[in-house]
Amino acid sequence: MRVRSLLPALAFTVLLGLAGCAAAPHRGAAPGGSVSSGSDSSGSGSGGAGSASAAGNGAGAPAAVPASLTFTATTLDGKRFDGTSLAGHPVVLWFWAPWCATCASEAQTLPDLATEYKGKVEIVGVAGMGQVKEMHQFVSDFDLGRMTHLSDDAGVVWKKFGVTEQSVYVLLDRRGKVVAKGWLDNQQIGDQMAKLAAA
């Protein structure tokens, strides 16, 4: 009688264990063990999802790393920069050149935007078409030190995002999908960053 009374409890425990195993893949794992971003993150230079990043997405879970952010570069300070560190965050990539008058005009607005959206939208300058010394001078002249700037004189990041001229903004949402690309005036970039932060 005692064995018979334990059988229903044992069966219930086994069912709970099976249900838990079945629910595990819904955390974003795709067949084959890779992590899915939940959408096609393709755009200029982007593709499917990659591996998980150690950077959090604000919810305590690892962010999926889309192909758009799988790049490495060197900052103007000579440090290694890993694009996967941006996973899970809205991102503005600003492609500029130190001799560009339009870039100089934009540079007068970006420091304020970087302060306003700190912790909400990541802004990364991608400098090219110039000497490193000139790039440093540009950053100093316009007080752009609050932003990370990459020295992309070889054009690796420019090519990845299909950028062929300055000044160009590439905006990516939290999933790494390119949602806007091109020239934006100071009002438009502010509006776009507000949308990215709210999404």
Score class of each variant (00 low, 15 high):
2 R>D: 12
3 V>M: 15
3 V>Y: 15
14 V>D: 14
16 L>S: 13
18 L>E: 13
26 H>V: 00
27 R>T: 02
28 G>P: 01
34 S>Y: 10
36 S>E: 08
37 S>L: 14
44 S>L: 15
49 A>Q: 04
53 S>V: 00
58 G>D: 06
59 A>I: 00
63 A>I: 01
63 A>G: 02
65 V>G: 02
66 P>T: 02
80 R>H: 11
81 F>A: 04
81 F>H: 03
81 F>M: 07
87 A>P: 03
91 V>E: 01
94 W>C: 02
95 F>H: 01
95 F>D: 00
95 F>Q: 01
99 W>A: 11
116 E>Q: 13
117 Y>I: 07
117 Y>C: 02
122 E>R: 03
125 G>T: 04
126 V>F: 07
129 M>N: 12
129 M>G: 08
132 V>A: 10
135 M>S: 07
135 M>C: 08
141 D>Q: 07
142 F>S: 04
143 D>C: 05
143 D>Y: 11
144 L>D: 00
147 M>Y: 02
155 G>S: 10
158 W>R: 05
160 K>H: 14
160 K>S: 12
162 G>I: 01
165 E>H: 15
166 Q>V: 07
173 D>P: 04
175 R>L: 12
175 R>V: 03
175 R>Y: 11
176 G>E: 04
177 K>I: 02
182 G>Y: 09
183 W>L: 13
184 L>W: 09
184 L>R: 09
185 D>T: 04
185 D>W: 09
186 N>H: 12
187 Q>L: 13
187 Q>P: 03
188 Q>S: 14
191 D>N: 15
193 M>W: 00
196 L>H: 06
197 A>D: 10
197 A>Y: 08
199 A>K: 08
